[in-house]
Design a protein around this nucleic acid. Structure first.
Lengths: 126, 126
DNA sequence: AAAGGTTTTTAGAATCATTCTAATATTAAC
DNA sequence: GTTAATATTAGAATGATTCTAAAAACCTTT
């Protein structure tokens, strides 16, 4: 594993947020001013293909990266922010229904996050 | 509803496949040679915002559109093709866990589709 | 520690999907 | 049938991501 691979892996897996390539790049740039975007792309793809990190795609936003510990995601419909939830593990049940081709699943719950609710509420009612 | 809106809605909801904007455009172009891409984009977005069609985002591929009847998706990890499955409805359970902000959920099951399995199998074993 | 070979990084161009802008066309309302 | 509103067109612009070719860093083997 190369220096950047390790650094990027650490940034992703220790973050409490769900980071975009842009954010990882900014973070990394602080410590290694000569790093470029392509390096971040190369390395997140490498890590992703190796199954070491998770990629989260949501329509109309850049991909974000996450640790691989089993959990699901809440996606705010208003602001796009992600939050973790752990819903019951559906693996066994889905494997049964899907057959031997089964690899993994991805469950996203769309909602309005508390912050956006408050903001909405203020505008509409108060 | 405008002419194109209706046509695009019909193309999406009567298709057995999960169509990209590109494919919808090609289909539509056959009947209306002067239609442009932007019109397809405008209209799928309009239909999507109105909740009349579903948008399916998978990492590294263009968005695809689908009818809104309740069902989940199988995504082939090799070729990206989508197939429908109907797994048990998790709405009630997720709403309970998520709270009043809940809107809807999206369940994608990644697998290797039968065609890709066969292709793989041939290369590896036979 | 120099030479050779592989892998990584860099810089910047290229690509792809999608959105935007401004002008034109179509539709609906009066 | 004129006005106002909305939709469509054409093409430029944007944003995210990939690609390409050259330079740099990293191993190995001497």
């Amino acid at each position: 594993m190369t220096k950047y691979e390790v650094e990027i892996y650490n940034i992703i897996t220790t973050s409490t947020e769900h980071l975009t390539v842009e954010q990882i790049y900014t973070e990394l740039k602080g410590r290694y001013p000569k790093v470029v975007m392509a390096t971040v792309y190369n390395n997140v793809n490498k890590l992703w293909k190796a199954g070491m990190i998770r990629k989260i795609s949501v329509e109309n936003m850049p991909d974000r990266y996450d640790r691989t510990t089993r959990h699901d995601h809440l996606v705010c419909q208003k602001c796009g922010k992600l939050a973790d939830i752990t819903f019951e593990d559906l693996t066994a049940s889905l494997r049964r229904q899907t057959g031997s081709g089964f690899l993994y699943y991805d469950l996203k719950v769309f909602y309005v996050c508390p912050e956006c609710r408050d903001r909405e509420g203020k505008r509409r009612h108060t």
